[in-house]
Design a protein around this nucleic acid. Structure first.
Lengths: 239, 239
DNA sequence: CCTCAAAACCTGTATGACAGGTTGCTATAC
DNA sequence: GTATAGCAACCTGTCATACAGGTTTTGAGG
């Protein structure tokens, strides 16, 4: 906040940053959509009058953020919306202890209270079925934590998808990485199978409310689910 | 979901992806915090037994996501949490028409209904003052839309900061770019100065509720604010 | 018109070179 | 003994070139 170089762009733009901007600008001005091809590195090299090294680092940077897709031999293409970069930012915040798991859960709760309501209102039959399916698979595999976790994650992502707002999906999916790192901890604090099955029951309740198209009920069950999950993490000592 | 190469890592890892993982892994395993230095490119080159080109593209990619800071002559350092990458993802979604402004506003509304409540509960005196200050500056400059907009953005970011959850700040700030592109449109639909001042009054109401520490009232005013903003955008034909 | 192989083009990676910035050490001056 | 100036070592930024291997285009031959 005090350092102007912090808030403003870069003090020294640097050729690579310039190239990155040129590429994104190209996407914008040409009105490119997902899947459309971008200029080749050679073309960009001529246009910007810089070395291929610079252009390549720019392309690679955009690829790392999953804004473009690169593969050998083919020209880069505009990418479909993807969580890649967001996940990495969140992970980075966690591993460098700039954000806590608890804080992520608070955001998740806020968002999923909304996605579950929207899902109840907007879900297609297929989406309702997919959500219920994930819940069912959790129960069927409840002796194998790893598998239960994956279905749990799929469950929440399916609800986000059923909200029909890709921005919600984006954020929920970005948090999945964190979930993968902490889920088992929460599971273990549910010492008895009874507790574990009760937690799975919570998911089934949510799925049922979505199927019935009852947003109020869905929100209520989701709130309970999160309260229990957060409590489990707190009990395990996760700040 | 159907394509395994989509969810799993890359089909062909690629040396650069490997290097990126190695660097993030280094941060994790060494427990580095923001500001700590990373190995030099030369060191990484030796460790991974790849060319400097590859290592460099990896560093540059992480720099583009703002996970690390690079500058000439100095070794790269672990970066403070920054919105950079998230903003770019959102912008990319908007410009390639994979998400709509309306969808972003729906997410903003969801999140800011929460941040405003948390701010009312947790804000320090200084934070409450900063929020009120932004609202005041909006009124003082209300003839200059550009300036009003910047204070509007600062207002919402200040509220997010006062929630004391950096993840909320991260997301709210990531949306600011979208706001900058659409704000003026909403402003123009408020044809009369009276309407414009009424909108500014809404901000002052929010600031006051936060100062009073009344989350319920704050949420109520925030809800009204968003309802009006979204209506203004809809009137202007923004989907 | 179809098929298939070569050519043209593209990205992935490696190597070497040099400019310019940063840091730390050392030798000199005080 | 201490402070300082300057040099050496190291580091990143950019460029040029080369070649391997994948992809698309083209054109010749059937």
């Amino acid at each position: 906040m005090q350092d102007p170089t912090e808030t403003a762009a870069e003090p020294n733009p640097g050729l690579v940053s310039t190239a990155i901007q040129a590429i994104t600008q190209h996407i914008r001005s040409e009105g490119l959509a997902a899947g459309d091809p971008l200029p080749s590195e050679a073309a960009m090299t001529r246009q910007l009058n810089v070395s291929r090294t610079v252009v390549r680092e720019a392309f690679r940077s955009l690829s790392a953020m999953r804004l473009i897709d690169m593969s050998a031999g083919r020209r880069a293409t505009v990418a479909k919306l993807d969580t890649g970069a967001m996940s990495m930012v969140i992970e980075h915040g966690i591993t460098t202890q700039q954000i806590s798991v608890h804080q992520v859960y608070d955001v998740r709760r806020t968002i999923e209270m909304r996605t579950v309501a929207l899902a109840a209102l907007r879900r297609t039959e297929a989406e309702a079925a997919a959500i219920a399916q994930s819940a069912r698979l959790m129960r069927e595999n409840f002796q194998n934590p790893e598998i239960v976790m994956e279905h749990d994650i799929a469950f929440h992502e399916a609800i986000a998808a059923a909200s029909h707002n890709p921005v919600f999906s984006l954020i929920v999916t970005a948090f999945s990485g964190v979930t993968r790192r902490t889920w088992v901890i929460g599971w273990r604090t549910r010492s008895s199978s009874e507790d574990q099955l009760k937690m799975i029951k919570g998911h089934e309740d949510i799925a049922e409310a979505i199927l019935k198209g009852d947003p109020r009920l869905a929100v209520e069950h989701m709130a309970q689910h999160f309260d229990k999950s957060v409590k489990a993490l707190l009990d395990a000592g996760i700040a």
